[in-house]
């Protein structure tokens, strides 16, 4: 049975609405993209949609109680929630440097979680994460 899937291209601000006709997971036709990049995007987005996940993890002894992190590469969209859950259990110690690997392999994706800023240690009493 053929079905129609619509995907909005986000490769550029124009945001073309692309319609895919698919059958059994195969793309039969593709319409609405203004350029070749959009067609590529729609194919990828249909087969394996991925996203960079930005979030935060707990820090002890830092000038702030949380440090921002992201996945070093995009991960499958379906794993975003699981990744956030796994990161909720992680705690690192200040100082943290931009680019530090916080988790090596998040949710078995093979992708690392890295810090996205320097977070110095607090000079006086540490700020508690609650």
């Amino acid at each position: 049975m053929t079905e129609t899937v619509s995907i909005t291209c986000i490769r550029c601000p124009i945001g073309c609405d692309i319609e895919l006709e698919v059958e059994d997971g195969e793309i039969l036709s593709l319409e609405g993209a203004d350029c070749i990049q959009g067609e590529e995007y729609a194919r990828e987005e249909f087969r394996n949609p991925t996203r960079v996940l930005p979030t935060t993890v707990r820090v002890t002894g830092g000038v702030l109680p949380y440090v921002p992190v992201k996945t070093a590469e995009p991960i499958p969209k379906g794993k975003l929630e699981a990744a956030v859950e796994e990161l909720a259990t992680v705690e690192v110690e200040a100082p943290v440097e931009l680019g530090d690997v916080i988790v090596e392999n998040i949710c078995d994706t093979g992708v690392a979680i890295v810090a996205t800023r320097d977070l110095p240690a607090a000079e006086e009493g540490p700020v508690a994460a609650d």
Partner: peptide, 20 residues
């Protein structure tokens, strides 16, 4: 903390803290 910064200036997608 989300990405989307720096595409024009650094031609690379950074998060806010990385850009800063």
């Amino acid at each position: 903390v989300h990405p989307g910064f720096g595409l024009e200036y650094f031609e690379e997608e950074l998060t806010g803290p990385e850009y800063a």
